[in-house]
Amino acid sequence: MEMLFSYGTLMAGITLTVPILLAALGGMFADQANLFNIALESFMLLGAFFAVVGSFLGASPWLGFLMAGLAGILIALVFGVLVIDYRANTVVVGIALNMSAWGMTSLLLELFFGVRGFLIDPRIVSFPNLELPIIKMIPVLGKILSGHNLFVYITIIIVVSVYIITYQSKFGLRIRALGQNPDSLETAGLSIRRYRYLAVVINGFLCGIAGASLTLSGLSMFSENMSAGKGFIALAAVLLARGKPTLIILASIFFGYAEGVSIKLQGFGLPHQLILMTPYIITIIFLFIGTRKKHARIGG
């Protein structure tokens, strides 16, 4: 029981929250554009791969970060063109994209690096761990807040920015309008199509760097299909939160923490599978409760 709240579990939970949180924030934008995007997984995987490529080529995690974001945007645009302009079914496109991203990254891995399955190379540079100067002196809290990978702090900055943009900027207002009442954009003389594309691009960027966080926050390696369902956990967070960044953050932290706990349990040979199930079961339960409430409101 005590290991559920141990320091190690907490740190692992924070690290595991990062990719889910970034991808879920990205997914939130697609959700706002009324696009049911199950391709988050493929955006992440592509990001994870190109993060490694960038870091390898430039010997800098920042180049990896940038390339991951761009790769995410690129595949998101493919998604966007197909579902926005060609009105293709988002689910079908999502499945096909997930399949092709898995295949493409494995093939490119073989082409660029001449290896199959996975790549470990000292030339892949991760972001460093960061000791926060004054904060780390604070008892207890200092130990929790300081000493994480730089990616954790980047994520915090991104989350805060997304929050501010969503609620304080004109752009955020329009994106929210896109989710709640797209016609109001049209009335205001704005192009719905343009804002849907913008939402998709942001989605791609955030999922791309979510992928980078898998490869560049200390692990410094890429393995085939390494996103392994994280995109779907992020999707669960998106569906629970329905456009509210605060809920996205809470859900992602919970899911990331559950994963951290399950890894600890696995170490002790305990049934970690049951813990890993919680994100999916919770999503089903909450969607049920949410829908019941809505019905009750309409009824009353």
Partner: peptide, 13 residues
């Protein structure tokens, strides 16, 4: 696998 996925993607257009 990529060929299969692309086949479907092109068809969705």
């Amino acid at each position: 696998q990529v060929v299969q996925a692309l086949f479907v993607l092109f068809l969705t257009v």
